[in-house]
Design a protein around this nucleic acid. Structure first.
Length: 552
RNA sequence: CGGGGCAUAGCGCAGUCCGGUUAGCGCACCUGCUUUGGGAGCAGGGGGCCGUAGGUUCGAAUCCUACUGCCCCGACCA
């Protein structure tokens, strides 16, 4: 019995041990397969991670210098150009920007050109205060209404150390008798002043301009396009007759249009604003309107016929030749640093800013290419020679002789900053008497002989200026549409561009269209043929097409 | 003022869910060498009160509370 059991046990052990061995082998096999699979997966994972890392590195590298593209993200592209081309940056103060040297240099060139045009049309510069007594504001009813919601107000004139030792606080005992408004525009303070300047028709016309900063407390801001504080010029003129004042407002509109087209190479439409869009306090607002590359419109300048509104509000009267006491007729007109935004959005591309030669602080940059000191010396000598030659014919030149950056870096940097022409001079050029010239507008490169380089450059700069204008004009033409039905209107407004459509002339219809489509009447054209038709929204009769668009 | 998001090096971000070595990465910066005709490479280096103030905890960039600031989307506007 016991031996039998033993046998059985022995058998069982044998069977078991076979099974154990078998299962052990299976286990080894399976686990080794699993192990190998694991190894493979880990390897794959590592490999994968490596690629991810690589992709991230590449991405970060490209992010370091490159712009978001115009097509992918237009508004980010715009911001990238402003900041990466060193035009401006956001400041510690919400909504206010720091205009950096390169951006300011362009603005200075704009100022210079405009200032000359103002003076050529008989205007003089003056300066009025930053602060306006609050009571002045309430004198012209619609003017207050227009600006009241966005005024910064000065209430106190002293700070003191906090009693709890936590920095400075406003000294409540130093409250102003009358609060001061930081000017959002200067009509009121200027007309209050003009009252004392004007007594007789002999004091007229009074043609004054001021270059100044103004503050409008905006909800949402964007560099150059809409900032809380901005730089501008404001012209304020007084005239003896209505006709003369209207003529002045129209003249300044032409000045703005000429500046936009000749200097900024930016085609503009001229027209008048509808009642809804009119300046607060104006009888008529004239404007120039440009089309940006994303199909949105941008108001680039305004000129207002103010009638006698401010003369009456501030009691500015003069004795006429007929010895009659009359109110004077007024205009005001302005353009701002917003033009910088217009400039950027009209011409620039995915390589950065494209600046028209007439406004470019640097028109030509010379980049030397060399391997050693001797070459650098020889090339520098030649470059300085060319620089002098170009400067002699009035070209603004920079010789980029920094030894800390490589040529490729410099090429990209100056493209980003919008320099119209780049000359590259290397050892080969010295031997051959050539120079490589690259156009910023077309990004084309060409080898030129060095002889008469000054004439060639001058010619090219003119060509670039013309080409930029033509390109912008072609773009506008291709994006201007006549629309005659409401369905067409709805469809087209989504695609962007200027829409020429009939309007019944009522503010109600304009408001309805705005609410339904976000499009506004940019202007009622001054030029072009008049044509009768039916309002695109209400179907009521219309005497001419007006320009609709979504706007900045 | 409504709705959403974020706050970590000069800039851009990871780490936060799930608390635990000396807080990382890219760009930029500094030094050296090699480079220089389209954003150079290698090696080394410096730089942080992790928005502020409380709390929880042996321990907080990480969890909780409050505050502040910024960004985006709407209403307002050149």
């Amino acid at each position: 019995m016991s031996s039998f059991t033993l046998l059985l046990v022995e058998h069982a052990v044998k069977v078991n041990s076979r099974a154990i061995i078998a299962s052990f082998i299976v286990f080894i096999l399976v686990s080794s397969i699993i192990f190998m699979l694991k190894v493979c997966m880990v390897l794959l994972f590592l490999r994968f991670n490596y690629y991810i890392e690589k992709v991230q590195i590449l991405y970060q590298k490209s992010m370091a210098k490159e712009l978001n593209s115009r097509e992918d993200n237009y508004s980010q592209w715009y911001t990238d150009i402003v900041t990466k081309a060193d035009l401006a940056e956001n400041s510690a103060v919400r909504g206010c920007m720091v205009i950096k040297p390169h951006g300011y240099a362009i603005w200075e060139r704009m100022q210079g050109a405009l200032d000359k045009m103002f003076k050529d049309t008989g205007h003089e510069n003056a300066y009025f205060p930053l602060f306006i007594p609050k009571s002045f504001f309430s004198k012209e009813a619609s003017h207050v209404e227009g600006f009241a919601k966005e005024c910064a107000v000065v209430t106190h004139y002293r700070l003191k150390n906090d009693e709890n030792g936590k920095g400075v606080v406003v000294d409540e005992t130093a409250k102003l008798e009358e609060e001061l408004i930081v000017r959002p525009t200067s009509e009121t303070i200027i007309w209050d002043t003009y009252r004392t300047w004007i007594q007789s028709y002999r004091d007229l016309p009074l043609l004054i301009n001021q270059w100044a900063n103004v503050v409008r407390w905006e909800m949402r801001t964007r560099l150059f396009l809409r900032t809380t504080e901005f730089l501008w010029q404001e012209g304020h003129t007084a005239h003896a007759t209505k006709d003369e004042a209207v003529a002045e407002a129209e003249q300044m509109l032409r000045v703005y249009a000429e500046f936009a087209e000749d200097w900024m190479a930016m085609p503009v439409l001229k027209g008048v604003k509808s009642a809804n869009e009119r300046f607060a306090g104006a009888v008529e607002t004239y404007c120039i309107e440009a089309l940006m590359q994303d199909g949105k419109a941008l108001q680039a300048g305004t000129s207002h016929f103010l009638g006698q509104n401010f003369a009456k509000a501030f009691d500015v009267q003069f004795l006429s030749k007929e010895n009659k006491l009359e109110y004077v007729w007024a205009t005001s007109w302005g353009v701002s640093t917003r033009l910088m935004g217009a400039l950027i959005m009209t011409h620039s591309d995915n390589s950065g800013l494209v600046c028209p030669p007439k406004l470019a602080p640097i028109q030509v940059v010379i980049v030397p290419i060399y391997r050693n000191d001797e070459q650098f010396k020889a090339i520098s000598e030649k470059s300085r020679e060319i620089k002098k030659q170009l400067e002699a014919v009035g070209v603004r030149v920079k010789f980029d002789d920094r030894d800390t950056q490589k040529p490729g870096y410099k090429f990209s940097e100056w493209e980003l900053k919008g320099v119209p022409l780049r000359l590259a001079i290397g050892p080969r050029d010295l031997e051959n008497g050539t120079v490589e010239i690259a156009r910023r507008d077309t990004l084309e490169k060409e080898m030129l002989q060095m002889q008469n380089i000054d004439q060639k450059v001058v010619h090219l700069l003119e060509k670039i200026q013309k080409n930029l204008y033509q390109k912008a004009l072609d773009f506008r033409t291709a994006n201007t549409f006549k629309v005659d039905s409401w369905n067409e209107f709805l469809e087209q407004i989504e695609k962007g561009g200027f829409i020429l459509a009939h309007w019944d002339g009522t503010p109600e219809t304009e408001q309805q269209i705005k609410e339904e489509t976000k499009a506004t009447i940019r202007l009622i054209p001054l030029e072009g043929e008049k044509e009768n038709g039916k309002c695109v929204y209400s179907g009521k009769p219309s005497s001419g097409r007006v320009v609709f668009a979504r706007a900045y």
